[in-house]
Amino acid sequence: MAKEPKVKEPIPYTKQQFLASKSFTPQQKDVLNAVLEDGKPYTREEVTHMVEEFAKRTVE
């Protein structure tokens, strides 16, 4: 029997792990510090989307 390929589940990280990451610029980390909740897990895809949406918003 052939095994089905395993689908990798996204790995969740905490706010502090994202803030310590070298994957984001200091400006992006400022956004993350403002929009992420302490103790709540987030996937990299979720966080990247949040940063992109924050950058697109307009100031009134």
Rank of each mutant, 00 (worst) to 15 (best):
P26S: 14
E9H: 10
E4H: 13
F24A: 00
K15P: 04
S21C: 08
E37I: 13
K56Q: 04
F18R: 04
Y13F: 15
N33K: 05
V31Q: 03
R44Q: 05
E9C: 05
D30F: 03
V31M: 07
Q17F: 03
D30M: 11
H49S: 13
L32Y: 04
Q27P: 00
S21N: 02
E52W: 05
E53R: 08
P41T: 13
T43Q: 07
E52Y: 08
L32I: 02
S23C: 05
P12V: 15
E4S: 14
F54N: 07
Y13M: 12
A2D: 12
K15I: 09
K15H: 03
E53M: 08
K22W: 05
L19T: 09
T25K: 05
T14A: 01
P41C: 10
P41S: 10
V59C: 09
E52P: 03
A2W: 03
P10M: 12
F24P: 04
V59R: 11
E60F: 06
K15E: 07
R57T: 11
L36A: 08
Y42W: 00
E37A: 13
M50S: 02
A2R: 07
V51Q: 07
E52Q: 10
E4F: 08
A55E: 14
V7Q: 11
R44A: 01
R57L: 09
S21D: 04
I11C: 09
V59E: 09
F54Y: 10
R44D: 01
L19P: 07
P5Y: 13
R57I: 15
E9I: 03
A55D: 09
P5K: 13
V59W: 06
Y42T: 13
N33W: 04
K15A: 09
R57G: 11
R44L: 02
K56E: 07
T14R: 01
P12R: 07
E60Y: 02
A55W: 09
L36Y: 08
K22A: 09
L36R: 08
P41R: 06
Q28I: 04
K22L: 07
E46D: 13
V59K: 11
V51E: 00
L36S: 06
E46S: 14
T25W: 02
N33C: 03
A20L: 08
V31D: 01
